[in-house]
């Protein structure tokens, strides 16, 4: 199975290539674009990016494994990052993680029983003054209490469709796919 980007995203790639003096400099943004369409970086995505940018697949693989934002396995529609660095932990970051683990019925790295949330921990997300906080997909949720945390998760759960019949989580939310178009050079419009 080969991976292809949508026609619209291909246009964005063409534009990205004009921004840098070398082709490979577009590698990070192109990988972001692919992840926003497919939800994660599959081996097929790596092949596609390598061909598109004239790079050895090993180089692209090396980049994917270096940066934490690229998911190397399928994830749920909502990826929840709990900040666990010092400022957040001083204000209850550990409690946030514990609460979500209990609610989702999974540990960090796992996906919730309903298939809607993947739980991860993050290193400092530059929101120390608004601790504790989580990032879900593109959004930051700050100054959390256990009550407001539950409200955030309730709302997201209500918005997210049920898991696909095969049991594999649907990658990316439709919302995220729309957002991909407004990122990477096209502005907010």
């Amino acid at each position: 199975m080969t991976f292809t980007l949508s026609a619209e995203s291909e246009k964005i790639v063409d534009e990205l290539l004009t921004r840098y003096p070398t082709k490979r400099a577009s590698c990070l943004p192109v990988l972001h674009l692919c992840q926003r369409e497919q939800g994660w970086i599959s081996p097929e995505v790596i092949d596609y990016v390598a061909k598109r940018l004239d790079l050895p697949t090993s180089e692209v693989q090396g980049i994917v494994t270096f940066y934490t934002m690229y998911h190397q396995e399928p994830v749920a529609p909502n990826v929840v990052w709990v900040c666990r660095t010092l400022s957040c932990d001083l204000r209850g970051g550990r409690e946030v993680q514990k609460h979500l683990e209990e609610r989702f019925g999974c540990h960090v790295g796992g996906t919730s029983k309903d298939g809607k949330f993947t739980l991860k921990t993050a290193e400092c997300l530059a929101a120390c003054g608004q601790a504790p906080m989580i990032q879900v997909n593109d959004e930051f949720y700050e100054n959390l209490t256990l009550a407001s945390l539950d409200r955030v998760i309730d709302e997201l759960a209500a918005k997210t469709g049920v898991k696909s019949p095969s049991g594999t989580p649907q990658p990316g939310t439709p919302e995220a796919r729309v957002r991909a178009k407004t990122l990477m050079g096209l502005g907010e419009g």
């Binding site: 921004r19 490979r24 940066y67 690229y70």
Partner: peptide, 27 residues
């Protein structure tokens, strides 16, 4: 002026690592 989106690596705040990352390499 272009915005270049990083991908989650603290080390890319080090200036030469940032340049490698900008050029599409491991940071």
């Amino acid at each position: 002026i272009y915005v270049h989106m990083g991908a989650g690596a603290y080390i890319c705040g080090e200036e030469t690592s940032l340049l490698n990352s900008l050029e599409g390499m491991r940071g």
